[in-house]
Nucleic acid binder design. Sequence first.
DNA 1: GTCTATAAGGCGATAGAC
DNA 2: GTCTATCGCCTTATAGAC
Lengths: 195, 195
Amino acid sequence: MTNSEPAPAEGKRDRLIRSAAELLYRRGVDSPTLADIAHDADVPTGNVYYYFKTRDELVEAVIDARADEVRQLLASLDRRSSPRARLKGLARAWAANEDDIATSGCPIGTLCSELNKRDRGLDQRAATLLSTVADWVEDQIRQLGRSDARELAITLLATVQGAAVLASSLSDPKIMTSQIRRLERWIDTLSAGDT
Amino acid sequence: MTNSEPAPAEGKRDRLIRSAAELLYRRGVDSPTLADIAHDADVPTGNVYYYFKTRDELVEAVIDARADEVRQLLASLDRRSSPRARLKGLARAWAANEDDIATSGCPIGTLCSELNKRDRGLDQRAATLLSTVADWVEDQIRQLGRSDARELAITLLATVQGAAVLASSLSDPKIMTSQIRRLERWIDTLSAGDT
DNA sequence: GTCTATAAGGCGATAGAC
DNA sequence: GTCTATCGCCTTATAGAC
């Protein structure tokens, strides 16, 4: 590897991953063909195999790209001053994506659900996305002094995942809006003590 | 139609629907082939087309079969004496399926989520399953004297759908158990008044 | 390194024998 | 009515030209 240029090969590889992430999110993990993805990324169809040995390897790259997004989001939230502010920041991040979520569900939740049914080991790699967020939320709630932080973290995540399933299936964006608002009020009530 | 026999043709059709329902639940809506389904139902592969014109028509029959299940469950719960007892009966029904849900998610929720991404009109038909339950829950909560019954019904359903996504994705049945328990306590606290 | 042409296999669907 | 044989298409993946 020389020190010169921005690696045009990387450009195409990244475009393939971005197009794949978007198409798999909108139309499901298995439905989009490599031709669909390559066309969207402006890459010749057969040439996908120069960058990825199999289709699953491209799916894996999409999972890893989502993992990067999650890490970046949580890192930005970590700069906030209090655990409550960090949790609320997470809620606002979801709120900012309400429309997409109401249309196609949670990018992470639907990915995990679908891979869970067409298992090839990819499902476990995808599950890491959810547990990363769960662990982070648990950590914030524990900092609020709650001993039942794990269950509360799961409760918080379940609310969002469930709202995403309902809002997208029933085509009703207001479900996301109202459930996130309820979540923010719930975060306000969180304080030391159990149940 | 004569009055004589249990209709052997019906037997095969029903077996195809049952096998399809199970396989689509376990492995996703698109993944199982007609050969897989026919084999599981002990019906010759090509013969599926005597009963269903297209694969989608079989999927539609699966949705309708789920709708029957839902109607029967809600009808049996309607025999209970109070709205609170009916809601708790629903929670117990979910608890009884905890293991399946922790393995493959909610049969209705995952069906709706997947069809939402491979749209052919089937998604709207499937969404009826969710809204039927939502409407019923809303009705029960309203009978408890709550004016915010719709939002509370969505909250209840979101909890279960979210728990199903998390439990199946993270392969942790305890998530379903604890969230259903929390739901039952929450039902106990429901009474007249808002928020 | 990049891309085209094509192979190999599996799928939904059909035609028609029984 | 029931089933078999098979078609034609689409998809992933490869071989090899440029």
